[in-house]
Amino acid sequence: MDRTKRHNAHVRNLEALETAFEVVSRSCKDSIRRGENHEILALTRTCALLLGATLEDRLMTIVSSPYFPQDSEQRVMKERTVLDMWHRVLTEAFAVRYKVPHSKIPSLLPFTSAAHFAGMKSVLDNWVEPLINVRNSLAHGQWIVAFNEEREKANQRRTQQLNTQTLWHLRLQRSMLIHLERLIFDLIATQYAFERDFDKHWKNLRAAEVRISMNKSKEWELLLRRRHQRGKRHIGRNYRRLIETGQI
């Protein structure tokens, strides 16, 4: 398959995954409103699996893009893990942008560009890696207890990562990843937009990160349930009024 066809196929896959995430996310919100805990757990895990899968497709759409050099793509594809691929994408994108050998990134970057690199790398280390770990555990059927690579004993760290994922966290992490992808696209495809728009994208990315750290998931879920209960009471009052006035 030639590069253009591969890119188009990756874009279609990504669009399908994004649609699936939105569909399952809406179902999960409805389960949260109704307090259906078994459904919430199953649908949250499914959202995490889908979000983790989009990480790989987002990566593939970037490296197969006509804006990304083909030799850079080949180096990305030689990396062992998806996280290593993301790190290589970042290195290659900065190398092309600032005409620095990829082996000298970030040491030969200008100060501001090096700061941009460090900030974007921190997103990969702090947010992308845990999502990849969760996706891998779920893809191997480890939906309640995660195991080590040999599957001979439980992996407490990955199990904790599984248990801390909520729909609220996942939607905010999805927002962060969209802004990160936008920054990388601007880095490789535009002449001025990366430097011009970096602070705007970084502000939005950091806002999502701050909201995650505040951990308002329980409050958000409680708000959804209260609104659902108010809606049910409103429907009940309207129904009784229609009966009392003889309209039904």
Rank of each mutant, 00 (worst) to 15 (best):
W220H: 13
I248Q: 12
R158M: 05
W202M: 04
L55M: 09
F111L: 15
Y239N: 08
W202D: 01
D84G: 14
L172A: 12
M176K: 05
V123M: 10
E18Y: 03
R34K: 15
E18W: 00
A42R: 11
E219D: 12
A93Y: 06
R240K: 12
R211T: 14
R12Q: 14
S27V: 00
C47E: 08
R233T: 11
A118K: 08
A48C: 05
N133P: 00
A193W: 01
S65E: 06
K153M: 09
L224K: 08
M176R: 06
R6D: 03
R97D: 01
W143G: 01
S113C: 09
W168V: 09
V100N: 03
L108C: 00
R135H: 15
P69F: 03
A16F: 13
P106C: 07
F185N: 10
E18V: 04
A139L: 08
R33A: 11
R75C: 01
G231R: 09
F117A: 04
W127I: 02
S25I: 02
V63Y: 04
R135F: 08
W168T: 11
V63S: 02
W127T: 07
L167Q: 07
T245P: 00
E79L: 09
N37L: 10
A93S: 14
D57C: 06
L83C: 07
V128A: 13
K232M: 13
T4W: 07
V134S: 03
N126R: 12
S122A: 14
R33F: 01
A189G: 09
Q247T: 09
Q173M: 14
N215E: 13
G52A: 08
H10Q: 14
T44H: 01
I40F: 06
Q191G: 14
Q74E: 15
T190P: 00
I184Q: 05
R3A: 09
A42C: 00
L242M: 11
